[in-house]
Design a protein around this nucleic acid. Structure first.
Lengths: 203, 203
DNA sequence: CATCCTGGATGACAAATGTCATGAGCGCCT
DNA sequence: AGGCGCTCATGACATTTGTCATCCAGGATG
């Protein structure tokens, strides 16, 4: 009885390659490949998948939200997150969303099939280095608004732009930016954005 | 007589998966896998490879420089660039560095093996959409110094930080930033950085 | 030699940004 | 009820940015 696997990753080449790699395993069967997060839960139900392998960064519905959707729609299906960036915050959020495993894209390929099997067996799979880092770099200190303002600031617009996007007064935006800079330790707006992104605090 | 292929990509999972995918093809043989650009030229010579598949974004030596190194060390070996980001500037630079093909990571997986074969046959392979975009968005308008200052600015430091990194006076840095903003069309420093990055003007 | 051009620097000025204190409204917790 | 934290807002202020004119040293070029 082989493991029925659904794969979601926005890069077609990577997605296809992962499918090919895992399809070689005798005990794994890739039953669906998706390019974004929106259809994952449906696909899991439709193909009665055992494991869903999700990328965190995806257009449309992001991987963490997709993980939550899968857990809700099919509680028996385990979720394994695969991501490019080892952002500490991602790990924690993914776990809270019900994921069973979390691996970074630069772990050896051999371990991937094994990770799928462990997750399927009900075990948890976490990159040890990342787990340690995740513990030291606690939860996001940012409030929802602060994160939202930082996101709006991340493409380099002026305070006026951000204010318009967030429907706030300019003064308020500067206050939130100031608070965010204090909490992240950044000395400029741009640095704060970078630090928050690196920690996975912007979702 | 199968095609001897070298693969370089910094994400181990992707690298392994690509190797597995292409290794399935009867006429392709993966003879080496590298995690960065530094050893690529040597590997190509050592294994007398026919085609080198290189990621643009890599630690150490970047893919474009690696491509040039390969062409120099083994002119008979063709280079196929594979990248996550479809930056117009990357394409042009890669071609100038002697690459024969350029594909984005979200092209269908089926086409990859075909791209390798075409490149091996001496043909050029270029994503048509990207080629068009590349033509419209001419060369980088930035001078070397402007690009350097933008790079130094890209992690969000203050003018003082940039000045120290670039060994320039603060006033000069602001002049270059101002010029770069005018040329990129950005209205803030951060926006200029983003625009230049999106166009592949920062290497 | 005179001249032009380029990279780098300076100084001044207006606008944008970062900081702080302050206040009001709201929900949540004890 | 009272206190606490988050949200949103003002206003004032010191810095930092972005803009511009200008200047200077040194190649290149005539």
């Amino acid at each position: 009885m082989s493991i029925r696997l659904v794969i979601a990753d926005d890069q077609a080449l990577v997605r296809g390659a992962l499918a090919a790699l895992l399809g070689l395993e005798p005990d794994i069967e890739v039953v669906a490949e998706l390019g974004d997060g929106t259809g994952v839960a449906d696909a899991v139900v439709e193909f009665s998948a055992d494991v869903a392998m999700l990328d965190v960064e995806m257009p449309g519905l992001d991987g963490i939200s997709a993980a939550a959707a899968v857990r809700k729609a099919a509680p028996s299906c385990r979720v394994l997150m695969v991501t490019t960036f080892g952002r500490p915050g991602y790990l924690k959020r993914a776990m809270q969303a019900g994921a069973s495993g979390f691996v970074v894209k630069d772990t050896p390929a051999r371990q991937l099939a094994e990770a799928v099997r462990r997750v399927h067996r009900g075990l948890r799979v976490v990159d040890p280095a990342l787990a340690a880092e995740s513990l030291t770099s606690g939860d996001s200190p940012l409030t929802e608004r602060e994160a939202q303002v930082l996101r709006a600031a991340s493409d380099g617009g002026t305070v006026a732009d951000i204010a318009k996007a967030a429907m706030l007064s300019e003064g308020t935006v500067r206050n939130y930016l100031s608070a965010a800079m204090a909490k992240t330790g950044g000395r400029t707006r741009a640095e704060a954005v970078r630090l928050a992104e690196d920690n996975g605090w912007l979702l």
